[in-house]
């Protein structure tokens, strides 16, 4: 059980998150959607303390952290309980796929090399990248890099996996393999927060969708509720715009 309370973040005079409350059950896949610049990335980054919020708290399985004034050990423990998958993969350039996945296990979890290797190989296999374990990121396609990044995050056994637009830096033909991988791990019971512009995908993979706008949660419900019968005007406008973009060119 993950409870986020009154999460606040602003950049100078730009209030990005204006008191977010969110309860997430174990195994939930929460899709986060909303207009560009509305603070979806900021929300995930605040949870992982890559951005320091101005206020709020998060508790994961009863372990509560005040986000704005936290000790170093709390920061580390929060980060160790969460995993992050970045838009631009952010693999360690000088490490092979296998070493990328092993790194956290050895350095942070203090696992023995051999044990870490076995874990890492299992994770690479899960995302279908075992055959590429000796490759460096520069030898991998974007989709492959993202799958390794997912394996790296999963290897740490996070209680909450944060995915920030995991496919939006990919060439269209590579999007499918990554979505397939995410769908796969979603079905294995990982708790996830997924920011994505792939509406159809969110609809398919999430069991709960949140629409973020103006620093607040505007819609919150099942995919069907949010996509098909949005209550707020802002969400309706957003979907209408999305829909227009999706029309084949000749009808415009």
């Amino acid at each position: 059980m993950i409870q986020i309370r009154d999460l606040k973040k602003r950049f100078r005079n730009n209030v990005v998150l204006d008191g977010i409350d969110l309860d997430i059950n174990e195994g939930d896949v929460v899709g986060i959607i909303g207009p560009s610049g509305t603070g979806k990335s900021t929300l995930l980054r605040c949870i992982d303390l890559l951005e320091i919020p101005d206020g709020g708290s998060i508790s994961i399985d009863g372990e509560k952290t005040e986000l704005s004034r936290h000790s170093r050990s709390q920061t580390l423990s929060l980060r160790r309980n969460t995993g992050m998958v970045f838009q631009r993969f952010n693999l360690f350039e000088r490490k092979t796929a296998l070493e990328n996945v092993m790194e956290g296990l050895v350095t942070v979890r203090k696992m023995k090399k051999a044990e870490a290797r076995m874990c890492a190989e299992a994770e690479l296999k899960r995302v279908g990248m075992l055959d590429w374990s000796g490759h460096y990121p520069k030898h991998l396609s974007g989709g492959q890099q993202q799958r390794v990044a997912i394996a790296r995050a999963l290897a740490m056994k996070p209680k909450l996996l944060l995915l920030d637009e995991p496919t939006s830096a990919l060439d269209p033909e590579l999007v499918g393999e990554v979505l397939e991988t995410i769908k796969d791990i979603a079905s294995q019971g990982f708790t996830m927060m997924l920011v994505s512009h792939e509406m159809n995908f969110v609809r398919n993979v999430a069991n709960r969708v949140i629409f973020l706008d103006g620093g607040k949660i505007v819609e919150d419900g099942t995919p069907r509720e949010v996509f098909d019968t949005p209550k707020s005007q802002r969400a309706k406008d957003f979907f209408a715009k999305m829909h227009l973009l999706r029309q084949p060119e000749y009808t415009i």
Partner: peptide, 17 residues
């Protein structure tokens, strides 16, 4: 690249690590 440093932080490494 900042991204790699963030990734290192995200897996729970300390700055010295």
């Amino acid at each position: 690249d900042r991204g790699q440093i963030e990734a290192a932080c995200a897996v729970g490494m300390t700055y010295p690590q």
